[in-house]
Design a binder for these strands. Structure first.
Lengths: 193, 193
DNA sequence: CGGAAGATTGAGCGTAGTCAAACCGAGTGG
DNA sequence: CCACTCGGTTTGACTACGCTCAATCTTCCG
């Protein structure tokens, strides 16, 4: 699917789970206007759509940040597979539980970290996930706008821009619009810690 | 178990899920000191310990807010039951998914709401959950300290105290230490937005 | 080329954090 | 019975961080 297209929206019957195979997505929760919060960004190899499982309808909206592809995993077949192959349902449980932990860590960040440290923690998380997929951990392309970063981190887009600038001035990052190079990974880690 | 006792801590092997039967708990995530965040408060009828499922070890700490009792549900038996009774594993999925949604709504609150509105939203949530268990929705006892409320809402305890005072002055609440009466439920709802 | 959307930077303001003091109730011991 | 402490709560004064409003600049497409 193309950039900007919507994978699912709030209220749609949730019969499938999506595994991102290429590209990336954001998931948005909350009210119609102004009160939106980006629950997470998801890159290739990660699962999207876990929130639909409880009520049978999605409670969030997933949007492609770039041209992307997904695999569909039907919930019903997951259950069936779980019955046939022990350990399969366990991996679905694990995915759900990991999403809970990820949400907890976002809560922690929103609750305790200064704007600068939120940016640092966010970039480190992105870096680690890129590394886990075999990409360079210190050189990547941000797929989302400053506004999107802000709506995930609980900051205004101006604050995001300013703090990125300060990380650049401190010699920790090289920033060219959406392209980011980490010059001082240790410094970045210390900041986020 | 007695007030203040710990149901499980980070790192403990997670073989069971807990259903609160009487009393209440808080779950704490994050670093050893200063960087703690209360992921949630749980009252009778709610499930605690869902975060242990992904890695087999708890990633949070659960503490009794008052003298409490829990039911133990072994994960292994849950899987077995899931195989025998279709629909049983689905309810486990649903519980996990609901916890994800709950975490999302906390994220939304931390990200977008002012201190006053966080307090309002928190009290409303508590009210609704009490009501769901058959207790009065407009008259209840806070089981946690102001500090705990703050550590859940991303606020300092002084701010919690001040904003509660302002809700009292506005005629929305009657506050006597931990005892809260909602005088203007509509006003409270409007505030939480 | 022109228009729109995104990013950067600046100035001023307001909300919540910080530091500090006073208060209150429960529990302990003289 | 009062004095004392200790944890939790309330309230006050000041500060600082991030938000608001606004202007400028860049990039991307038609």
């Amino acid at each position: 699917m193309k950039q900007g297209e919507i994978l699912y929206r709030e209220g749609m019957p949730a019969e499938v789970l999506f595994a991102v195979s290429v590209g990336s997505f954001k998931t948005v929760v909350g009210g119609p206007e102004g009160t939106e919060q980006i629950a997470g960004f998801f890159i290739a190899g990660e699962l999207v759509g876990l929130d639909g499982l409880s009520s049978g309808a999605y409670k969030s909206r997933a949007t492609a940040l770039e041209d992307s592809e997904v695999c569909l995993l039907a919930y019903s077949s997951l259950e069936q597979l779980g019955n046939e192959m022990p350990g399969f349902q366990r991996s679905l449980h694990a995915a759900l539980s990991r999403e809970i932990l990820r949400a907890y860590s976002v809560m922690l960040m929103l609750s305790k970290l200064s704007a600068r440290r939120r940016i640092a923690a966010f970039l480190l998380d992105l870096s680690a996930r890129h590394a886990a997929r075999g990409y360079a951990p210190d050189d990547f392309h941000l797929r989302m706008s400053r506004r999107d970063m802000g709506e995930h981190l609980g900051l205004r887009l101006e604050t995001v821009s300013r703090q990125m600038g300060r990380l650049r001035d401190a010699g920790i990052l090289e920033v060219d619009d959406k392209h980011v190079r980490v010059l001082d990974m240790h410094g970045l880690t210390k900041l986020a810690g």
